[in-house]
Amino acid sequence: MADYGNRTGRATPERKPEPPADKSFPADPRTRIPFAIALAALAGCADSIGFLEFSQLFMSFMSGNTTRFGVAVANGDWENVTRVASTICMFCFGAFLGTLIAAWVGRWRLAVLLTLQALLLAGGLLMPWGTFAYPLHAYPIVLALGLQNATLQDEGGRSLALTYVTGAVVRFGTGCANLLLGTVAPSFWIQAPLWAGLSTGAVVGGLLDIRYGESAFLFPAALAAILALIAIVLTIAKPGSTLVAGSSPAPDASPKAEVIDAIH
Rank of each mutant, 00 (worst) to 15 (best):
G5L: 14
T8F: 07
R15S: 03
A21T: 10
R30V: 04
R30Q: 02
T31H: 03
R32N: 13
A36R: 06
L39C: 15
L42C: 12
A43I: 05
C45N: 11
C45S: 13
S48Y: 04
F51A: 03
S55C: 02
S60C: 02
G64P: 12
R68P: 00
F69C: 10
G70D: 06
D77Q: 02
T87I: 14
T87F: 00
C89I: 12
F91D: 01
G94H: 03
A95I: 14
F96Q: 07
I101Q: 02
W104V: 03
V105N: 08
W108E: 12
L121V: 03
A122P: 09
A122I: 09
L126R: 13
M127W: 15
A133G: 07
Y134R: 13
L136A: 08
L136T: 14
P140G: 10
I141R: 09
L145R: 05
G146P: 14
G146I: 11
A150S: 15
R158Y: 04
S159Q: 11
L160P: 13
A161F: 14
T174W: 01
L181G: 05
W189F: 15
Q191K: 08
P193T: 09
G197H: 07
L207Y: 12
L208I: 03
Y212L: 15
A216S: 15
L218C: 00
A221P: 10
L229P: 09
I230N: 05
I232R: 02
I232H: 03
V233M: 06
L234N: 07
K238G: 00
A250L: 14
A257I: 04
A257G: 03
V259R: 09
I263H: 03
I263G: 04
